[in-house]
């Protein structure tokens, strides 16, 4: 029973981080119809910046200070996004999708090398926060408390994003732009500005995912590519461009992966691809996508 509870918490932990990554990916696709292959490395960039700030720059500082430094990775990813969208991506919106894939895939590689160049080939750790949070006992299992904070941040980010998009003026303008960009412009919406805002928000979410996960893992090269593959499984299941889809997809992938690790670790990834393939066969646009 306790083991089952641990499995559920682990699934939610994984789903929280996945939602932050896939939600941003889906938001960006929904507004500007661009599949951003580089998205995973914005998540990795967030992880690296936070690990660098917490583990290197402020090493030895009191834990509350370290906790306050946690979001710098998210802010750094947002700033990077705000620079990348107008300079690198904007010229390609009118081109065929192949060009967009090539450009964002190239960007994925460039960001990977940029991180290698800045922080070197070795993993970067921010485990001081993780260790200071200690652990609690669930039944007779010892479980790290920090993981619960990650789930809390994931849930808070999901609610905040929902409220932002469905309950604010900016959200209405964002949805209008994503549904009919020409008509939004003809009503006075500065579409370029909405694009950079949406892209920045998506990158902020990815960076936040990296920032909150890095104390329990480490920032390593290649983490962004692993993450973007899983994020694509999430959006394939949930439907590209749908936030509800990203949320449900992240929870499904979180549970399927945890079950896979627990009971058939040899084919854990294959099970995820099978789940995605099943959804694609039954509903090609994903569970919440529009055909």
């Amino acid at each position: 029973m306790d083991v089952l509870l641990i499995h559920i918490i682990n699934s939610l932990l994984y789903a929280s981080v996945l939602f932050l990554i896939a939600g941003g990916l889906s938001l960006i696709y929904g507004v500007m119809r661009i599949v951003n292959m580089a998205h995973g490395n914005l998540y990795a960039f967030g992880a690296y910046v936070t690990a660098w700030a917490v583990g290197t720059m402020a090493a030895g500082a009191p834990v509350p200070v370290l906790l306050m430094l946690l979001p710098v990775g998210a802010l750094a990813a947002a700033i990077l996004g705000a620079i990348l969208e107008p300079t690198l991506l904007r010229p390609f919106y009118r081109r065929a999708e192949e060009y967009q894939l090539l450009v964002t895939f190239g960007l994925l590689m460039i960001l990977e090398d940029l991180m290698r160049f800045i922080w070197g080939p070795y993993p970067l750790s921010a485990s001081e926060i993780f260790e200071n949070f200690g652990s609690l006992t669930i039944g007779d299992v010892i479980y790290p408390t920090y993981n619960l904070l990650v789930i809390g941040v994931g849930a808070a980010a999901a609610s905040f994003l929902w409220a932002f998009i469905y309950r604010t003026r900016f959200g209405v303008v964002l949805r209008a732009t994503s549904q009919n960009m020409r008509m939004a412009a003809a009503l006075g919406v500065n579409v370029n500005r909405v694009y950079v805002q949406a892209f920045t928000l998506g990158c902020f979410m990815a960076g936040l995912g990296g920032a909150i996960i890095v104390p329990s893992q480490s920032a390593v090269l290649g983490m962004g590519i692993d993450a973007v593959v899983l994020a694509f499984i999430v959006v394939v299941i949930g439907g590209l461009g749908s936030l509800e889809g990203a949320l449900v997809g992240a929870v499904i992938v979180g549970f399927v992966r945890e079950a896979g690790i627990a009971w058939f670790p040899e084919i854990e990834l294959a099970v995820l691809y099978l789940a995605a393939a099943t959804v694609l066969l039954a509903r090609p646009a994903g569970l919440f996508g529009r055909p």
Binding site: R169, V172, V173, R175, A176, Q179, N180, R182, M183, A184, A186, L187, G188, V189
Partner: peptide, 26 residues
């Protein structure tokens, strides 16, 4: 002001939200 042939109504927005966009941008 512009009303296109296909009307360009935002499908997922309520009629009221369709009207509010311009006011918010002013």
């Amino acid at each position: 002001g512009y009303a296109p042939e296909d009307c360009g109504i935002f499908p997922d927005l309520s009629v009221e939200e369709n009207f509010q966009i311009t006011a918010w941008l002013a």
